[in-house]
């Protein structure tokens, strides 16, 4: 839905970005001066001052992550900020930001939140960012919500998941070969929980399904991506002859 005009506007904004940001700051500074000089701003002036467009990328990034209902990737944050449709005459101070800028801002917020001990963390899971309460506060949160401890996965479910996570795509028979027990029931239940999914079919006779983990798997265990899985114990090498 981007018109040519807006494109042009964006282009223009690129050129004048620095000046514009300067102006914005000047505006804010004026409001502050006024507050100091006149003693107090009245309530309306305060609201107006707070509504001046945010000038720091951190502010905007933090707001987007907070308001998005699901974890949001740094790219999605960048696109939303960079490509916002502008009002006539408006320039976008963030027209040139990169994903790396966004990630830097996210990292800063995460560190500040942690340092200030505010009870919430900004975390990256499954390729997206979200706010969540700190683990040490869980018992109090549950007391407030009158909630029980959430149900956790059984040993057999965790073992099956571990094998699938490290060896995906993998057929059921291969999982059974490693665990030494039948896993059809567990695999079906894990599918229903959307922690695993069928990712294809094997070339083996009967063309059995191959299974892999889902993004929800990463969320469940608080993993950024599959690379974050700990390395399998290397001291357990191949069996000595």
């Amino acid at each position: 839905m981007k018109s040519k005009e807006q494109d042009a506007g964006g282009q223009q904004a690129d050129d004048v970005k620095v000046e514009d940001a300067g102006e914005q700051q000047a505006d804010n500074a004026k409001a502050e001066d006024k507050a100091k000089a006149g003693g107090k701003m009245n309530a309306a002036e305060e609201v107006l001052a707070s509504m001046a467009a945010a000038s720091s990328l951190r502010q905007v990034v933090g707001a987007l992550v907070f308001s998005n209902p699901a974890p949001i990737s740094a790219e999605a944050v960048r696109n939303a900020i960079r490509d916002r449709a502008l009002e006539p005459g408006e320039v976008n101070p963030f027209a040139k930001i990169t994903t790396r800028d966004v990630v830097a801002a996210l990292d800063e917020i995460a560190q500040d939140l942690h340092r200030l001990e505010l009870g919430i963390d900004l975390v990256e899971v499954s390729g997206g960012w979200r706010y969540q309460t700190q683990p040490g506060c869980g018992r109090w949160v549950r007391a407030l919500l009158k909630a029980d401890k959430p149900a956790r996965l059984s040993k057999s479910a965790l073992e099956t998941l571990a094998i699938i996570a490290y060896r995906q795509p993998i057929a059921r028979s291969e999982i059974e070969g490693i665990r030494g027990v039948a896993v059809d029931h567990v695999v079906r239940a894990l599918m229903e929980m959307h922690l695993i999914r069928a990712t294809g079919r094997s070339e083996l006779p009967g063309r059995p399904f191959l299974y892999g983990t889902t993004p929800l798997f990463l969320e469940h265990f608080g993993l950024k991506n599959l690379d974050e899985l700990a390395e399998l114990d290397p001291s357990l090498g191949a069996a000595k002859a």
Partner: peptide, 21 residues
Amino acid sequence: KFKDAAGTLMVREAGQAECYL
């Protein structure tokens, strides 16, 4: 190997089970 990996997952899950949105 996988039994140990499952143990690590269990610890991760225990931590996540304490976090709320």
